[in-house]
């Protein structure tokens, strides 16, 4: 079960275990991470689970699908590492990844 880190806009860090096959969005919600809202429940409709993602020792975080990339274009504060956490699934490669929360979410 990979462990990832969330960093809130004030710089405080929180560790979250992501069960294999579960999405990072749902794991964050279950862990009570403020700023991960996931209003639409995970079908790439709402942009409220957005984070800036940096891979950790586990290696690469899989790249976004074309549909996710299109949706990320709507973000006023999109960066190269913007992701929807509802599209990232728990697997070994996720170990140590860091998810930075945008201040406005």
């Amino acid at each position: 079960m990979p462990t990832v880190t969330f960093i809130d806009p004030d710089g405080a860090a929180a560790q979250v275990d992501v069960r294999r096959g579960e999405t990072v969005m749902r794991a964050a919600r279950a862990a009570g991470i403020e700023g991960i809202i996931g209003e639409c429940g995970g079908f790439m409709n709402c942009l409220t689970c957005h984070c800036y993602v940096t891979a950790g020792e586990g290696g690469q975080v899989p790249a976004p699908s074309a549909a996710e990339a299109d949706l990320l274009d709507c973000l006023a504060e999109r960066r190269a590492n913007s992701r929807l956490t509802c599209q990232i699934v728990g697997e070994d490669g996720l170990e140590g990844a860091v998810f930075t929360l945008p201040s406005w979410q």
């Binding site: 209003e39 639409c40 079908f43 409709n45 709402c46 942009l47 957005h50 299109d70 949706l71 709507c74 973000l75 006023a76 504060e77 406005w104």
Partner: peptide, 20 residues
């Protein structure tokens, strides 16, 4: 970041354009 209809999930960006 966008306007999203809570009924059926149609979405619109801040420029008012339908995105989904």
């Amino acid at each position: 970041q966008q306007f999203r209809c809570k009924y059926h999930g149609w979405t619109f960006n801040l420029e008012g354009k339908n995105t989904q």
